[in-house]
């Protein structure tokens, strides 16, 4: 743990670039949120289109959160990614069941 000291300007520069990416991510997230809210607020489209579109927007945002804000894109995140995807797998099954086969 001694070799990778961070006083050098290279590392600082890298952090800065990373932060710039984070800001772009944030701007996109805010953009998606505004789009999502305005779809609903203006009644711009039919329910059949609106609902899938809203879900897609949410998924993209969540992807940004995980991969950029939480650094899942970085190295050393193989296990976190595996466990999150494992959780998503169980989560999808749970939601599918509770949506599809509770009422009939």
């Amino acid at each position: 743990m001694t070799d990778n000291t961070n006083t050098n300007s290279f590392q600082k520069q890298k952090n800065k670039e990373e932060m710039k990416k984070q800001l772009i991510t944030f701007a996109l997230m805010i953009g998606f949120t505004i789009v999502a809210f305005s779809i609903v607020a203006t009644n711009a489209m039919d329910k059949m289109f609106a609902v899938p579109l809203l879900l897609i927007l949410a998924l993209i945002q969540v992807g940004f959160q995980f991969y950029y804000f939480m650094h899942m894109k970085d190295r050393g995140h193989e296990f976190p990614a595996m466990m999150i995807y494992g959780g998503v797998f169980a989560a999808l099954l749970t939601i599918a069941a509770l949506v599809a086969i509770v009422w009939w």
Binding site: A90, T94, A97, L98, I101, V102, W103
Partner: peptide, 12 residues
């Protein structure tokens, strides 16, 4: 309410 929800959650 719906009691099948419990069954699903319990068996999941």
């Amino acid at each position: 309410g719906n009691s099948v929800i419990w069954q699903h959650l319990f068996w999941i």
